[in-house]
Design a binder for these strands. Sequence first.
DNA 1: TCCTAAGCGAGACGGTACGTCTTGTCTTCCA
DNA 2: TGGAAGACAAGACGTACCGTCTCGCTTAGGA
Lengths: 195, 195, 195, 195
Amino acid sequence: MKKKIDRRVLRTRRQLSEAILALILERSYESITIQDITERADLNRATFYLHYGSKEELLVDSLETHFDELVQLLEAEANGEPPWGNPLHMQRVFEYVAENQALFRTVLSQQGLGYVTSSVIRYIAAYNERQMVLAQVKTDPLPASMISWHVAGSLFALISWWLENNMPYSPEFMARSLFQLCTVGTYSAMGEGSQ
Amino acid sequence: MKKKIDRRVLRTRRQLSEAILALILERSYESITIQDITERADLNRATFYLHYGSKEELLVDSLETHFDELVQLLEAEANGEPPWGNPLHMQRVFEYVAENQALFRTVLSQQGLGYVTSSVIRYIAAYNERQMVLAQVKTDPLPASMISWHVAGSLFALISWWLENNMPYSPEFMARSLFQLCTVGTYSAMGEGSQ
Amino acid sequence: MKKKIDRRVLRTRRQLSEAILALILERSYESITIQDITERADLNRATFYLHYGSKEELLVDSLETHFDELVQLLEAEANGEPPWGNPLHMQRVFEYVAENQALFRTVLSQQGLGYVTSSVIRYIAAYNERQMVLAQVKTDPLPASMISWHVAGSLFALISWWLENNMPYSPEFMARSLFQLCTVGTYSAMGEGSQ
Amino acid sequence: MKKKIDRRVLRTRRQLSEAILALILERSYESITIQDITERADLNRATFYLHYGSKEELLVDSLETHFDELVQLLEAEANGEPPWGNPLHMQRVFEYVAENQALFRTVLSQQGLGYVTSSVIRYIAAYNERQMVLAQVKTDPLPASMISWHVAGSLFALISWWLENNMPYSPEFMARSLFQLCTVGTYSAMGEGSQ
DNA sequence: TCCTAAGCGAGACGGTACGTCTTGTCTTCCA
DNA sequence: TGGAAGACAAGACGTACCGTCTCGCTTAGGA
């Protein structure tokens, strides 16, 4: 019972993906209409509805590739350590962000993409927790999920800060800072004698 | 040369504010039309446009009151300390969130309110930085704004986690946890011998 | 290279035409909204704008059919004579008016249809002049167009008078009267000895 | 029980009259809003409603002056003759039109003023009939009112033609032409041997 | 290699919300 | 008391976008 997907279908979906990704880099997500997408993709508006039910559906489908790529990259390097336990580990994330700078900047800062924003934190937190369970980290007296969210929130915030300030530091530095802020706290991270 | 604001105007704006705040607690922000708002407020649709240019404008105006309240509360208690430097300080935030639970839950989790989400982090970070400057905290070798964002992201994430898990801990506990995670880091916060 | 007009389009336009013609017979033209027309035509309001830019455009389009009918009828009978030169000729006009009584009554008397009113005189005058040129009528010392307007004004007025007085005379009588008033003048038309 | 009309009221009405008369000379009657009129008159919009119920009411009130003037002028000169019985009589009409050229041009040709257009013919016809009755004109076998309308339609048409063609003839010539067309008919008016 | 089901373009249409415009009413305040 | 100022309800306007549909044409891929 083979699925035999028409090559035209694949082509059409690719065109739609490329169109929406190109468009969100250009202007506000909410201002983009399905008409705009299909025009850019050189397709008929009705054709859109043969493949997706909404802009959101297409966007999620289009972004999946990117995030899956990153997650696979991370999981390959995680060796029984909590995700922030190793600066090198986090460094990959910042490097990946730097490579896909335009996309991340858009996704993290655009108004209409709010639901992506919050999913991202949730997504990172879930990933963190998964890794912590695998690494059998004990977190008493705090629950593991709280720690996961703490780190996810911090990571998200640092990435946002980094992009908004035009990446003034190297990925290494950012990763090391995150590592320190999370593991040994702000007091130590800021050096002796501070505060 | 007094401004002489018509009492009707104030009344109308209050009705609109109450209407939109009530509606976002009931259903998806994007699904709310201006027609819905004015109907709920018992006003004519055209009247809306005499006061606001869009749903967003009204929402921001309506939320301001709440957040300003919180900020004033915090600033009154901050005595030359960084905002997370004192668990009691943060406790106020969690208590405030608990009191306005329904609103925060909606604002932090609803899809269409994404731009609020990211503004909130930005807002907290800016507040943090302001306080750090006032407290003359030295942050070498990390820039103060990075620390601000780190703490803001963490606070945001912990509030989200807290609300999503139906507030399983007291505001005191949450504040103390945040304090520890931020100041002395995850290792210490999680107790000796962990990891 | 045929035009390929969608049958649905024709159907839609017919529905709109019928709707507006029915409505102007019922009530004041100005009081009719596009909403009214589309409701009567069982169509969506937006659909109206796919076909016409305004009520006026639709009305003109709808009336054209009627007037073209009359003009064709007249031209078929005109044999090198000026249009009022033959009572039988004009008789057709009055007969046609009688048959489409309700429509003419409305078009000639309704306030909002003023621009139709004046176009009608202009329209008749132009027709007259065209016929006079064809018939090579010499009009010295008066210009042909002045004569055309004179007769058009008279025809228009007599039709109005006829309808307003509930058609007290037969089309034949009206046509003969118009013929006499125009060709031999009021003195002769009113019989010998008058005045 | 004197009426004590405030001088301010008269002033206000005059301002409104002048405003609407000025405006119809400038642009389409329908495009003129009450807002426009009151702005031009340097009055508040609400004030309009203290004096008139609609644009139409104001316009009729404003035009009355002009037409009454003309009628008085005509009646003063009519000495028991039917109104078209004397070329000199009609000449006054054309002269009056020429003097108030801009106004007549507007009133007769503007779309939205259709109801004025048809009232004008009705008005002239009624005047004609009144004069015919006074002059005890016998019109057998045609009814007097039919004759009145015939002449009114012709007069209206000739005035329209005259204005549309930028008044190529003198009032005297127009009056004489109308006289001939109406009294002795087109055949005679166009000279011997024509047709 | 044909043929048949699918993908797709074109575009009409119903539906919904938009933001704007004009009207008419009302209230408050001033001269 | 007449008018200015302006808030508001009411409702039509023309536009924009959506999602659905129908009608053909083209073309891929199984027979």
